[in-house]
Design a protein around this nucleic acid. Sequence first.
DNA 1: TTATCGTGGATAATTTTTATCTGCAATATG
DNA 2: CATATTGCAGATAAAAATTATCCACGATAA
Lengths: 172, 172
Amino acid sequence: MKLGEGVEAAIHCAATLASVEGNSTMPGAALAESFGLSPSYLLKHLNMLTAARILESVPGPAGGYRLARAAERITLLDIVLAIEGREPAFRCGEIRRNGPVKIDASAYVKPCGINAAMLRAERAYRAALAEVKLSEIVAEYAAEGDPRSRAASCAFVERHQRRQKSGSTDQT
Amino acid sequence: MKLGEGVEAAIHCAATLASVEGNSTMPGAALAESFGLSPSYLLKHLNMLTAARILESVPGPAGGYRLARAAERITLLDIVLAIEGREPAFRCGEIRRNGPVKIDASAYVKPCGINAAMLRAERAYRAALAEVKLSEIVAEYAAEGDPRSRAASCAFVERHQRRQKSGSTDQT
DNA sequence: TTATCGTGGATAATTTTTATCTGCAATATG
DNA sequence: CATATTGCAGATAAAAATTATCCACGATAA
């Protein structure tokens, strides 16, 4: 069981974007630089966040990304599912059926108990992630993060955020 | 997030081995045939289960695998960890540090909140798996599985299990 | 008009997973 | 004791997923 690197990047980017003011945006290149990631690859992940309506993108100079809704309404689960996909980690291949003795398919209509147990565990995992709001992550960092690191983050945001002439102010 | 195919195979094999009598064993080749899996690859997984002390192996003709302890004392978590490894799915790469602005390492002594939240979710996942005993999986199948499928499984076990002359009867 | 930015597709490099094969040690059986 | 059967370890290879790069395109602020 393994989560792709993209998840960590996506969460950090979302957390950073939670700190930009109003409807300002931040370019993907700046986010990539901020974390020392390859820009072209990070854009793929940012695209997935956009497709999942977690981020909004604005083209053009002064364009970039911003949160599509308030950080209180974004959970870690939203982000993880957007990057890793919604399929469960355990996929029942129904290997019971692959034996030498062929049995009618009607014998396998009930879902196998193993599958059920694995999916239950995964629901617990997702439930735990769904309880963590992006705003909490940011708040915790603001409260307990090292001052030097925090100052650097703030400066970075200040330097790269771009105010919008007119944008959707739908911080619903 | 993805679990390897080996997990499903391993659980099914363990469940099958839970049905062999006493200290009898069943060869890996038979287990592979029973699920239509490649024998040489399945052996890798069975080896991991053996290394994790979930299975015991007996060499020689009449040899094979058996549970290393009672099915009541084996959980799905035991098996998943044996196959997938004990490392958490989320690994914090500390990408905060990789930005253009270098900050002293002492600024990052506190574990990042994102990491903490992800690990908490994974603990919930593992806790859920730890609650499911192999014996429950087997019992549920015996109680609710399709009779035809069950009969085939029983016949298969009966045909391939091999009684041991003398073996550890440590079904602790 | 120009420079900046996101988008999408094609492509490639890298790593992980899955799979196979071979020689070796252990051990019931006769 | 010889033989056949089994598990084990290591090398190797095939396949798939992940990670990464590049380029042509449309949008837009200045």
